[in-house]
Amino acid sequence: MTAQATPGPGTPVEEPDAHTWTGRARRWLLKKLPPDKLLPEDQPSYVASWAYVFGMGAIASLLWIVISGIVLGLNGPQWYHVSSLGNFVNSTHLWSVELFFIFMVVHLWLKFWMAAWRGGRVLTWITGVISFVVSIVAAFTGYLLQTNFDSQWIAFEAKDALNAVGVGAWFNVANVGQLFTWHITLLPLAVGAVVILHVLLVRVHGVVPPLEAAESDAQLLHNRPEPAEPPEPTAPPETAESGGAVR
């Protein structure tokens, strides 16, 4: 990234006279996440491994889950029992969920072994785990909405766990109306929000460098004097970043 990639015309990053709440919010956002950090055209040289593709795989699967889910939802819960097209769409909904979890779990394993929470990235790890947990609940409500033998039995089995901790009345596994609220409104919104936050945090903090990266490494020494990140005129990177959210 070279110098001319910094602020586009009309959007000066630095607005010393921002005094409204809105202006300050914009300045804070642009400082945390300038456009070329949000949509980067390069990555550090160490971002070169198949280990980096699974997060994107999970996001792609999530998009397919949403698309197939919208089709299923608009046709109503009984459609897939009686239509072969419906049955196929139901299959794509199921398999995109299976792929979503496969990618997400491999992503989680890899990020653990890369200790990806280092250097102020702990909130990225936490949002990742939360998105995994919320996804599990969302998938569970999907299994309860199959309106077939499997959902009948899962509802019968699972009611005990929910009742035992006192939430069974509002999360009533045998009330299809409640489950629709959970499965097609609340939980997808929650998964979407946490995943978006997770991705934004990855962009804000950048991809974690190798565990044994040292100042003496050739790839760090190379162009030491000239930062590859776009320069921020007032605040040098060190101090600008050190007030990060996790401190």
């Binding site: 971002v47 460098p209 930062p227 970043e241």
Partner: peptide, 15 residues
């Protein structure tokens, strides 16, 4: 190195 913005060599990447 993990806490600072990366200043080393980069590779092309298309999000």
């Amino acid at each position: 190195a993990a806490s600072r913005p990366w200043t080393g060599s980069v590779r092309e990447y298309d999000l």
